[in-house]
Simulated assay, not measured.
Amino acid sequence: MKGRVLVIAGSDSGGGAGIQADIKTITALGGFAMTAITALTAQDTRGVHDIHPVPPAFVQAQMRCVLGDLGADAIKTGMLGDAAVVDAICEVLAEQAGEPALVVDPVLVAKGGARLTADAALQRIRDFLLPRAALITPNLPEAEVLTGLSIADEADMQRAAAALLALGVPAVLLKGGHLDGDRPEVVDLLATRDGVTAFRSPRIATRHTHGTGCTLASAVAAGLAQGMQMVDAVRRARAYVQAAIAAAPGLGGGHGPLDHSVTMDPARLVRRA
């Protein structure tokens, strides 16, 4: 086990996204996951049915306990909820000497369409959290909210990535899965001040994609925590997500979860017993 990752995000009672997906992902990639939960959700594959926020002071308490004892090599944020929570997180991050690599997944809207981040929190994320990040991982709707741009094709993605870099972020992984579903491939762009790397993979025709954003961001965070270079961490994370989608167990009546255990072989333990 290598690489300590603190995840600051909401809980998904359905187990496919949020903290549950983060823990599974980091563990499957050989890292050690720790958590500071920002909200509890009543959620399944069909959508988010209720949200119970965690008080900002308790989010801070979780972070300080983890960072003061176990430490972290990387930190990943997901669903943050309101402005007070964002402010509380930034306050604790500012206390850290030699701040761990921060991966920000700007979780704004759930797969089923529910808005997960208030407007005031969005402004705080843009102004205070993004400049601290080593990487942000927006999907296209999130990038449109953050930049005010409309994104319909790969050229638009290039412009949006440049606009996100202009917010003070050193690296942007812009996920292109929301482009026209008739396209045979999915393209993601990793943009830095040194240029843009395009990652392409065949589109998998499935409705079982719940938690892909959380999973990808946590997979990258695990790679950075393990000392991987950014482009290599992204490449491995994408390969893991593709494999997990392809192996999805088909659960639920809506957007089903991935198979986060795709890297594991339980039969190996039986053979060794």
Score class of each variant (00 low, 15 high):
residue 21 A to M: 04
residue 116 L to A: 02
residue 5 V to C: 08
residue 256 G to N: 06
residue 252 G to M: 07
residue 45 T to G: 10
residue 216 L to C: 06
residue 143 A to V: 12
residue 204 I to G: 07
residue 103 V to N: 01
residue 100 P to K: 05
residue 165 L to K: 07
residue 264 M to N: 10
residue 176 G to I: 02
residue 61 A to Q: 13
residue 21 A to I: 06
residue 222 A to S: 15
residue 141 P to D: 01
residue 265 D to F: 07
residue 179 L to H: 04
residue 69 D to E: 15
residue 203 R to N: 12
residue 38 T to E: 08
residue 130 L to E: 00
residue 145 V to E: 01
residue 57 A to Q: 14
residue 191 A to P: 04
residue 176 G to W: 00
residue 262 V to P: 01
residue 138 P to W: 00
residue 82 D to C: 14
residue 209 T to V: 14
residue 79 M to W: 08
residue 217 A to D: 05
residue 121 A to L: 06
residue 60 Q to H: 09
residue 4 R to I: 09
residue 129 L to V: 15
residue 238 R to Y: 05
residue 55 P to G: 12
residue 102 L to A: 13
residue 236 R to S: 15
residue 243 A to S: 14
residue 233 A to W: 08
residue 258 L to D: 05
residue 93 L to Q: 10
residue 105 D to E: 09
residue 135 L to I: 02
residue 62 Q to S: 13
residue 60 Q to E: 14
residue 253 G to W: 05
residue 125 I to K: 04
residue 125 I to H: 03
residue 138 P to N: 02
residue 4 R to F: 10
residue 2 K to S: 14
residue 149 L to E: 00
residue 86 V to F: 04
residue 101 A to N: 03
residue 252 G to Y: 04
residue 5 V to Y: 06
residue 2 K to A: 15
residue 71 G to K: 09
residue 39 A to D: 05
residue 145 V to S: 01
residue 89 I to K: 00
residue 82 D to Q: 11
residue 26 I to L: 05
residue 249 P to D: 12
residue 243 A to H: 04
residue 91 E to G: 07
residue 88 A to L: 08
residue 116 L to P: 00
residue 43 Q to N: 10
residue 84 A to Y: 04
residue 132 R to W: 10
residue 46 R to K: 14
residue 175 K to I: 02
residue 240 Y to Q: 06
residue 225 A to E: 11
residue 60 Q to V: 12
residue 175 K to H: 01
residue 260 H to Y: 07
residue 81 G to W: 05
residue 38 T to Y: 02
residue 242 Q to K: 04
residue 188 D to A: 02
residue 41 T to D: 02
residue 121 A to S: 11
residue 265 D to T: 08
residue 106 P to K: 02
residue 220 V to L: 13
residue 106 P to D: 03
residue 219 A to Y: 11
residue 137 T to I: 08
residue 144 E to T: 00
residue 10 G to C: 12
residue 101 A to W: 00
residue 52 H to M: 15
residue 39 A to P: 02
residue 241 V to D: 07
residue 173 L to F: 00
residue 82 D to R: 04
residue 91 E to V: 14
residue 268 R to T: 12
residue 228 M to F: 13
residue 185 E to F: 12
residue 68 G to W: 12
residue 260 H to P: 05
residue 216 L to D: 01
residue 93 L to Y: 12
residue 25 T to F: 05
residue 99 E to P: 08
residue 214 C to Y: 03
residue 113 G to P: 02
residue 213 G to K: 01
residue 161 A to P: 05
residue 17 A to E: 02
residue 28 A to Y: 03
residue 194 D to S: 15
residue 115 R to F: 04
residue 115 R to Y: 00
residue 264 M to K: 03
residue 262 V to L: 09
residue 87 D to V: 00
residue 183 R to T: 13
residue 181 G to E: 13
residue 50 D to F: 14
residue 119 D to R: 07
residue 50 D to Y: 15
residue 32 F to A: 11
residue 115 R to E: 06
residue 186 V to D: 00
residue 29 L to S: 03
residue 34 M to R: 02
residue 177 G to L: 09
residue 237 A to D: 06
residue 261 S to T: 13
residue 133 A to I: 03
residue 74 A to G: 13
residue 98 G to L: 11
residue 125 I to P: 00
residue 199 F to L: 13
residue 157 M to W: 02
residue 14 G to P: 02
residue 146 L to M: 04
residue 230 M to R: 11
residue 206 T to V: 11
residue 131 P to I: 15
residue 131 P to H: 10
residue 18 G to C: 13
residue 49 H to C: 12
